[in-house]
């Protein structure tokens, strides 16, 4: 996962899926460790994304403004 280039929505969705998986009854320990590692990776990527404080404003022209 490239730094700061994550799709936040996708990352959160994957994190939610992992959490849901953990809520299931049949949880394999090895698989669980792998998934937990992935969850931590996603969480830290999401947090990194949330540290972006800037919002860019770009003005656009109205299409028919000059007609």
């Amino acid at each position: 996962m490239a730094k700061g280039k994550i799709n936040f929505q996708k990352a959160i969705e994957e994190l939610e899926a992992i959490t849901e998986w953990f809520e299931g009854t049949e949880v394999d320990l090895d698989e669980g460790l792998k998934k937990f590692e992935r969850a931590l990776e996603l969480a830290s990527a999401c947090k990194e994304k949330m540290d972006e404080f800037e919002n860019k404003v770009k003005e656009i022209k109205k299409k028919f403004a000059d007609i």
Partner: peptide
């Protein structure tokens, strides 16, 4: 940000707890 921070923390914590439970 704060809500998402909390939500993410809750999710990882829940996963961690489950992992410990399983262990």
């Amino acid at each position: 940000r704060r809500d998402m921070d909390y939500e993410i923390a809750m999710m990882t914590r829940r996963a961690e707890e489950r992992l410990f439970e399983i262990a």
